[in-house]
Computed example of a mutant assay.
Amino acid sequence: MADKATRVRIDGHVLSLSNLDKVLYPEVGFTKGEVLDYYSRIAPALLPRLTDRPLTRKRWPDGVSGQPFFEKNVPRGTPDWVRTVTVASPGSTRDREEVEYVVADDLPTLVWLANLAALELHVPQWRVGPRGGVRRPDLLVVDLDPGPPADLVACCEVALLLRDLFDADGLRAWAKTSGGKGMQLYVPIAETSGETTSAYAKELAGKLAHDHPELVVSSMRRSLRPGKVLLDWSQNNPAKTTIAAYSLRGRETPTVSTPLTWEEVEGCEEADALSFGPAEVLDRVEELGDLFAELSTLEQRLP
């Protein structure tokens, strides 16, 4: 017998939520209802990370033991109250087809996406305006990806070196885990071109790779990566997206891409110490607030 749908009203919109008891993370028995609960409760911190940003979703309709798929275009049956925006596929030529994205600006849209088993939420470093016009990037992101046996502890060591370079240029950076083995550093900036942010991030990555060759690599060549941390500056290409802060990950257990304090980065001695699940992240936000709050308001200029 099919699971009976549950109808709820959120901010004036009626949603039909289905299969709430379905287990999406079999290893720990974490259900779709628990996914919906997490996204509903984390929304005040998560939504500012998604607002005005075309959203790429990674969905696991059969749970994380099943086959996932990335989704950019709006799915069939999208409610008419969901905000969408149609833009040229980033990095494409004029004659390539456009993409109609979902833009998750509000709680009903976030809950609707969670009901579709959109566990992972990925966003670009640029936004769209109120009429859908594409704006220039307002974030610079460097992805720190460890090549085994390097791990999150090594990423933290590199993050501190990278923070020092940002500091030297008068820039403040914020750190978060990827929800997996790596992490990302974010620098909120005044809107500038993707070419400019990419070139600046590439320059810093190259400097660290030169100064710390035993620890850092800036080349994408896989043969160079074992035991080192790749500084992936290419995340600043307008065609790229990065996992949003506070998004779940589709791993064996429900980990979360979690903002960190610099004290936590400085004190990292075990990778597992900076791995957080939904309940822990909700507790952290209650205790520490949204550690990424300033990213929505601070504009810094690249040197």
Rank of each mutant, 00 (worst) to 15 (best):
L248Q: 12
P75C: 07
A114Q: 13
L47Y: 09
D145S: 06
F166G: 02
S234A: 14
L20Q: 11
G194N: 11
L215W: 00
P108W: 11
L291M: 08
G66Y: 04
L152A: 14
G133W: 14
S223R: 15
L208E: 03
E263F: 01
P188Y: 10
P254W: 02
V23G: 00
P213A: 11
G250S: 04
L110H: 02
R49V: 09
A45C: 14
L171A: 09
W233E: 04
L171C: 06
P148E: 12
S65M: 03
A150L: 09
L274W: 07
N73I: 09
F292Q: 05
P146C: 04
L298H: 00
L55T: 13
M183P: 05
V285F: 11
L107Q: 07
S198R: 13
D145N: 01
W81A: 06
V229P: 06
A205S: 15
L50N: 02
W174H: 09
T197I: 08
P90C: 03
V265E: 00
Q125Y: 04
G91L: 11
D290T: 06
K22R: 09
Y186N: 10
T84A: 03
V256I: 14
V128A: 02
K4N: 07
P68I: 06
G227V: 07
L165W: 08
R251P: 01
W81V: 02
Y200G: 11
I42V: 15
T84L: 06
V85A: 12
L36D: 07
D145H: 07
V229E: 06
R53T: 02
E252H: 03
L282Q: 12
Q67W: 05
K176V: 04
A239E: 03
P90S: 08
V23F: 09
P259G: 04
S257A: 15
L230T: 02
D143E: 05
E203K: 13
W174F: 15
D143H: 05
T242K: 04
A168E: 15
R94A: 15
L288H: 15
R163Q: 15
V8Q: 00
G91H: 13
L282C: 04
S65E: 15
G180D: 13
F30I: 02
D143V: 03
V265I: 04
T31I: 01
V229Q: 11
S296G: 00
A88I: 09
L55N: 01
W112Q: 08
E191H: 08
L160D: 07
A279L: 12
E280Y: 08
G179C: 10
L231D: 02
I189K: 02
T51Q: 13
H212C: 02
D283A: 15
R135Q: 14
P303C: 05
R225V: 03
L116W: 04
E286M: 05
D11N: 15
S16W: 05
S198H: 14
A293R: 14
G267L: 04
S275N: 14
N115Q: 11
T192Q: 01
P68F: 07
D52I: 07
L282R: 14
F276D: 03
P137C: 10
G129N: 07
G250R: 01
E191W: 08
D272F: 01
S178T: 14
L274V: 01
K202Q: 14
V265H: 07
R94M: 13
L165H: 08
P108F: 06
L121N: 12
T196S: 10
I243T: 15
E97G: 15
R249H: 06
L302Q: 01
